[in-house]
Nucleic acid binder design. Structure first.
Lengths: 197, 197
DNA sequence: CCACGGTGAGACATTCATGTCTCACATGGG
DNA sequence: CCCATGTGAGACATGAATGTCTCACCGTGG
């Protein structure tokens, strides 16, 4: 490990492969190992040298996703300032990883019987703690449990990531759409709605 | 077609098979045709007699899901009364089909290249029209587009359905958690939050 | 210059879900 | 009673994705 530079025939960058695979599997969750290798610009043999199999690749993606979530959690400084602002920062920091999170959130249904990566428990706990803090400070309503708000955050991130890829939401609106719906909901709060019908 | 009654060895009820398959695939989206047949109490041969293949089964489930959505849309009477109340009725009517919707919402990623069942366009339009009506009446905020609110509804239904199956949300709270988050968001509106930190 | 490590390409066997077929059997109607 | 229909069980072939292996090649470092 002296130069860190690499031509197209040098040692494969594990991180580059993982991020390429994440980008591909985000769009097509059933992509073949061959397609993943092609997307990363390497051969299937080399891909298999770095990740023993598809399971290992998905597990590595899971670890990457957890790491990115924790990095976003760190960068958002959830303990500082109003909980609502902390949540806004969290969503903003999470946006680059939203596609990967969407893939893992829907793929996790496959790991039902197996042992669950306990990294998710750590991430879930930190997010739930933010919602709990907001409830205790009086900023968040208490009839929605922190566990549900955490799941709702995952769900909205996933929905908005897909909506962006399908062109239903503009990429620049990702953070606004996600965080505003999660925080304020669809109802207007400022004005009294005029009755209809 | 005289009696419509059937013993356990008589003609298989297509609707029963579909609903059993929906319930199974909701929990395990990768279930094999053999597992689907076992769950429905029939043999794989019989299952294949009714649905030419897995694709045909998923398509039939898609049609069932669209039909249930349209039935819920009809029952919710979206044109009557305040839009917020109409949305509450819609979520309540949709709850029984939430698992199936969750399966289709995540499985639809697989039908990217193929032709899309235009039934979803009808459902999407009716839901988006509800949100638009709410915006025009002044009840819903206008910075969240109807298309995004529609996607968010799907996403929250899916997230809440999964949260219920995983025990993170009580089944009886399904409608409340979903509709209250979608309408009101996480923030308290009545009281001014006391500042923290 | 040469040996070594990492890679690409391809062949090959394996596994698994699927699609298809046959046969035996139970039920219900004529 | 006997036949038609629909079913269950199982065998079989197919296709796709995967896992494993070999071989040739290239660049690096000695």
């Amino acid at each position: 490990m002296s130069h860190m530079g690499y031509s197209r025939l040098m040692a494969v960058d594990r991180d580059h492969v993982l991020r390429t695979a994440a980008a591909l599997l985000t769009r097509k969750s059933t992509a073949t190992m061959d397609e993943v290798a092609k997307a990363a610009g390497i051969s299937r043999a080399t891909l298999h040298r770095h990740f023993a199999g598809r399971d290992a690749l998905v597990r590595a993606l899971e670890s990457l996703g957890i790491a990115e979530c924790e990095a976003a959690l760190d960068a958002a400084r959830l303990d500082e300032g109003p909980a609502a602002d902390a949540l806004r920062r969290l969503v903003r920091e999470t946006e680059p990883a939203a596609g990967l999170i969407a893939f893992l959130y829907t793929e996790n249904q496959l790991f039902e019987g197996d042992e669950r990566n306990d990294g998710w428990a750590r991430v879930d706990d930190r997010i739930a703690a933010l919602f709990r803090r907001g409830q205790e400070s009086g900023a968040f309503r208490i009839d929605l449990t922190p566990a549900w708000l955490t799941e709702a955050l995952y769900g909205l991130l996933t929905a908005c990531a897909w909506a962006v890829t399908e062109g239903r939401v503009a990429p620049k609106d990702f953070t606004h759409m996600t965080v505003e719906l999660l925080l304020g909901g669809a109802l207007r709060q400022d004005a009294s709605p005029r009755e209809e019908s």
